[in-house]
């Protein structure tokens, strides 16, 4: 992209000192550079850290992407924190979490989900305002590729694991779940197709989670993991403003209630280098026999 001449001017001592540093660097060949990089380098391109998914992993809100959380590049460490609220006709959702990105290679994440059953809780005999809670511990490894750079035909590809622990074991087993904890395995491919200003993501998730795990894992209709799909399509309006949609298929294991695929339409705005706000229309279908759960999601993410 740039073509500076390699011509070394020798007119000043200061310039020669720089040349001397170059000689030293060449002689030391890979040893510690004269100036160490800051640990939190914060040099990632805006929005290429993704936005926190509802499970805490970097992604598009509903889907996990192959992106790594935090604003670090391959020479530093990044930190990310988020809080998400979803208002549905019969339920409320609050989740929050943190993530660490290491050298844009490894992501470690934690998220807590709190699912408020409001009046449904009373109808289900749990008590009005009963909350299902879940902890999610995630890890992701970028295998190959880059979301932005490199061949336009090679996406960034990552594999991930999410260990989910429902904090309401007795209740989720009572509704038919086989287990109160479970582990999802996933593989994601993400690419920003610059020539079209379009970002595409596809994720395969091997999971047995009921309602993301809030209602436990497995059930009468199936206890083993099944392969599910998460797809995202987004269009970049500016380098800080993205609109898109997502779809996420889900298992349907419980006997007492049907589970549907989830969809969203989102707009994400990085109003600062370190802060992104996301607003979305979310449709998660039927939840615990209450159909048509469509509502609004708002999420705020800070990243360094």
């Amino acid at each position: 992209m740039l073509n500076p001449s390699s011509g070394a001017s020798a007119r000043t001592r200061r310039r020669l000192a720089v040349a001397g540093a170059a000689v030293a660097a060449a002689l030391l060949a890979g040893a510690t550079p004269a100036q160490a990089d800051p640990l939190l380098d914060g040099d990632k391109l805006i929005l290429t850290n993704g936005i926190a998914s509802i499970e805490g992993a970097s992604g598009g809100g509903l889907a996990s992407w192959s992106t790594i959380a935090g604003m670090e590049t391959d020479r530093g460490i990044g930190l990310s924190a988020h809080v998400t609220g979803i208002a549905l006709p019969d339920y409320g959702w609050e989740s929050h979490g943190v993530a660490v990105g290491i050298r844009d290679r490894v992501e470690l994440s934690y998220a807590r989900q709190n699912f408020d059953t409001r009046k449904v809780g009373a109808a289900l005999g749990l008590g009005e305002g009963f909350r299902f809670n879940q902890d999610i511990f995630g890890a992701k490894l970028r295998l190959i590729g880059d979301t932005v750079y490199g061949s336009p035909w090679l996406p960034q590809i990552s594999i991930g694991v999410q260990h989910k622990r429902s904090l309401d074991g007795a209740i989720v087993r009572a509704v038919g779940a086989k287990s109160a904890s479970g582990t999802d395995f996933s593989a994601s491919a993400t690419k920003l197709i610059l020539s079209k200003s379009v970002l595409v993501n596809a994720t395969a998730r091997w999971t047995s989670a009921n309602q993301f795990g809030l209602l436990g894992f497995g059930g009468p209709k199936g206890s083993a993991r099944t392969l599910q799909f998460e797809g995202s399509l987004a269009y970049m309006l500016t380098s800080r403003l993205v609109v898109g949609g997502e779809v996420r298929t889900r298992p349907d294991n419980l006997g007492i209630a049907r589970e549907d695929d989830a969809h969203d339409l989102f707009v994400a705005w990085a109003f600062d280098r370190h802060a992104t706000v996301t607003a979305a229309y979310v449709d998660v279908g039927s939840v615990a026999t209450f159909d048509g759960q469509r509502g609004a999601l708002v999420s705020l993410q800070l990243a360094f």
Partner: peptide, 9 residues
């Protein structure tokens, strides 16, 4: 570095 490249972009 990658970070330098991002700054250029």
């Amino acid at each position: 570095t990658r970070g330098n490249m991002n700054a250029l972009v």
